[in-house]
Each structure stands twice: as C-alpha cells, then as structure tokens.
Amino acid sequence: MLEIKDLHVNVHGKEILKGLNLKVPPGEVHAIMGPNGAGKSTTSYTLAGRAGYEVTKGEIDFFGEDVTALAPEERAARGIFLAFQYPLEIPGVSTMNFLKTAMNSQAKLRGERELNAAEFLRAVRSAAKELNISEDMLKRPLNVGFSGGEKKRNETLQMALLKPKLAILDEMDSGLDIDALKLVAEGVNKLRAPDRSFLVITHYQRLLDYIVPDVIHILAGGKIVLSGDKSLALQLEQNGYDAVIAKAA
C-alpha cells in the first residue's frame, strides 16, 4: 500500500532523509522510532506533502501510484492523513465547520457527492460520542484553548471522519498525561481496520504500550537502520538508542 523507495529529502538546503526505504502493507501498524534529529518529523511532513520538504531522489508510492509530486490536498483526498504533533488553532472557525469543509473538499476532489447537513451531523455526532467529545467542543473554534488531550482527541475525530487509508501519527503522545494518552490510544485502536494502515512516529516506547505495532523501524541519520517486531521497543527502552543503533550498524 505504502512504499517509500530510496527517499532523499532536503529541508532548507540540508539533506535530512538520506535513502529511506519503507513498506507498509494494508491493515498493519508500523512504528518509526528514533532519536532527536533522526528525521522523524521530516518523514511525516514529506509524506503529507508539505512545501519546503524537497524530494531530491526516490519516490513515494501509494497504492501503486507515485504521489511524490502531488499537492497535500490531493494526497489527503487519496487517503493519507497526518495527525499533527501540535495541532493548529484556527480562531473563529468552529470544529464542526472545519470538519464539514474538510470532508466536502475531499469528496469534491474525489468527484464524490458531498454530504448533506443531516448526514454530516449524524456522522459527526456518532464519531464524537465514541471519543467522548462534547457537543460544546464541536462548536468551539478549532483547537483554540483546547487542552493537549482535547487537541489530540480532535485529531482522532478528524481521522475517524475522513476515513484515511494511511494515518500517520506524529508524536501522538506529546503533551498528554497517561489518562489522556489512554483515551486517545483507545480511539485510534477502534479505527484499526484491514484496509487501513498506521505509521506511528514516536520518540518514546510508552505510546506503543497502548497502540501495539506489527513492525518497529528505527530511524537514524535519515534512514531506517533496523526493523523488527515490538520487542525492539523494549530493547530501546532498556539499552537506549545509541547502543541499539551501534549494534545494528
């Protein structure tokens, strides 16, 4: 489903990703772990298509299509979703309005029918209920004054409604206490499906206790240096990045 081939990416003229290779089959949860500066955020932004993340070599294939040159909104419409580490605030735009605009924009890009008001409301209310998101929160301006937990739950709500094929979770656990983390992880786990893959990007092993991955990749120096099952996370926890990366090299 997702196949990244020999990806090289420059940011501000500096090469950050130096030959990243990665395959994520449908329905699987893959984690990318790595020390600070390894290129974790660059990977998620590049997959989402952010301007300024310049692919100098290699390609990103999504369901067999090379999406490397596609605009972010086109990728979104094809089913790539990025849950942000720090979700942005948009004053004056209610969460509800934002969700509606996003869903309708994607439908339009895919040439599908837009939801009518009643269908949309039904979809939002049922998804919000699952995530313990109140009606009041849906009416508040997007992420403005939200707590860390509320912001991440809001990201999960967006994911639930936009129904991506690939969800990239960028440092989903940052800014969350343990209760909030459990709640968000629970929400994410409910969205696991045979036709939906996850790429969980995280510095800490903690998150992977709650969102259990099929495969763990270790990213260091702009490429994947080691891949393995979930036991790899425990090795990291015990021995630290340096030792595990040194052993792999």
């Binding site: 989402a48 909104e73 979104a76 934002f98 996003a102």
Partner: peptide
C-alpha cells in the same frame, strides 16, 4: 504557513 498546511493536509485547497 503552519495553519495553511494544516488545512491542506485535511484536503482543503
């Protein structure tokens, strides 16, 4: 740019 990219990444042109 962050706000714009956030919208783009949700499929909003």
């Amino acid at each position: 740019d962050d706000q714009l990219f956030y919208c783009l990444s949700r499929g909003i042109p």
